[in-house]
Write a protein that binds this DNA or RNA. Structure first.
Lengths: 229, 229
DNA sequence: GCTTTAACCTGACTAATATCATGTTTTAGG
DNA sequence: CCTAAAACATGATATTAGTCAGGTTAAAGC
């Protein structure tokens, strides 16, 4: 049994909510749902995308390979986010790779349904535009953080960001579990430096760990650090 | 005598070209043209924008203040570029400040004409969307550069970027003249470090200078440096 | 359950870059 | 034209973060 986009609550979180009944029906008829295992790729940098991916469950990292062979994670996409929009809209091959960070369920939507709606339904287009404007603002903020904050500050900020955007479990650990290497690739540092700073934070009781899980323990201290106190 | 948007060649470079005759007429009727002196602000971070600014001549730096008091320049806008779009679309106050880097002529276009066109003319909306998708890709590239490249590489890249995007004069100097501090703020480094590296490049004959003007002299060496050779 | 591999961790060293101090040149204003 | 301020420049030093090398622990495959 295939579920319908019309009934998908995920839609409430993204631009698809601005689609008309008919547009949504078409999208639903052409979409395919995929199960993706943790660690598996969804698409790769340079690949021509013929559709977008709507995340129903799990988290994906969107990264770009740098000249020195390191992956810079530019965004983490979770429930409700649409991946590959930018490339489809700009009619360019993807500038990012997407890899599942946890087990995922995503819907693949062929671009035709999206592109046609963009040209015919201004409400939908404006909605997509708003989303992209938001992403652009976030990107500006990241640029400033990268150039003006220390690695320590960026790691502290990353934990707060992960907690605020992905939540925490009953014991106060982050719902999202990233490897140290992934965290390093989010903040743009060497894995060893990242591990060292995590150890330091743990020693200072800013955070707590349990296996791979990490939990924010002293929000204020972390925030002060980020703000430069 | 007031010039009309319909006849403005600048329009060819931006999303306004996708507007209908009527929409353009309205924009032209409500716009005002301003002369802005080098160093003068156009708008500031946090300010609520009630319109966008279309650059007719000159260059503006778009920057964001970081916690440690430094300005990070996120973009340089020149002829044909529209500033403030993002904020107007997202209906947020501006996340960036705009300051004239050279004497400028800009047209201020009240947002109503833009917003209404966005909701009524899908071609225009898609055109704006494409532009923003492009900007977002560039932002991703900047993030990777910031985190993965050395200051030296970023400065080398900046000179090549400035030449490719703003051109050079008959003697081979960059058409755009930035202070050392501005260059430092583009690449996200300390002014002293920037000056030092410029001196080094000059000594190695990668670039030449004449007063404040800088010219690319050895493109290949600069490019090799950027690419990590 | 054992073995292999990947992830995590720590120390020592090095390279890159920021900061501070100070001097010189250029530019702008009266 | 003169003077003050801003921009440019360079040296010395301190700090940050990257790299290399060697471990330990945890996880995955046979």
């Amino acid at each position: 049994m295939k579920s319908r986009c019309e009934n998908c609550i995920i839609r409430q979180f993204n631009s698809l909510r601005a689609m008309s009944k008919e547009e949504l029906k078409r999208v639903s008829d052409t979409k395919t749902t995929k199960i993706i295992k943790k660690g598996d790729p969804i698409f790769s940098e340079g690949e021509k995308l013929n559709g977008v991916f709507c995340v129903r469950d799990g988290v994906s990292k969107l990264s770009k390979l740098s000249a020195n062979g390191k992956d810079q994670i530019v965004k983490l996409a979770s429930k409700g986010e649409v991946m590959g929009q930018r490339s489809v809209i700009a009619e360019e091959s993807s500038n990012l790779s997407a890899v599942a960070v946890s087990d995922m369920e995503v819907c693949y939507i062929p671009k035709e349904g999206i592109v046609d709606a963009l040209h015919q339904n201004p409400n939908f287009t404006v909605e997509v535009l708003r989303h992209m404007a938001h992403d652009l603002r976030e990107a500006d903020d990241v640029i400033v953080n990268m150039s003006q904050k220390t690695v320590k500050q960026r790691i502290a900020e990353a934990f707060l960001y992960l907690r605020d955007n992905f939540g925490e479990d009953a014991e106060g650990y982050l719902s999202i579990t990233l490897s140290r290497e992934d965290i390093a690739n989010v903040v743009g540092t060497a894995t060893e430096s990242c591990i060292r700073i995590i150890s330091e934070f743990k020693k200072k009781k800013y955070i707590k760990t349990s296996g791979k899980k990490i939990g924010v323990q002293d929000e204020k201290k972390l925030r002060d650090l980020v703000d430069g106190f």
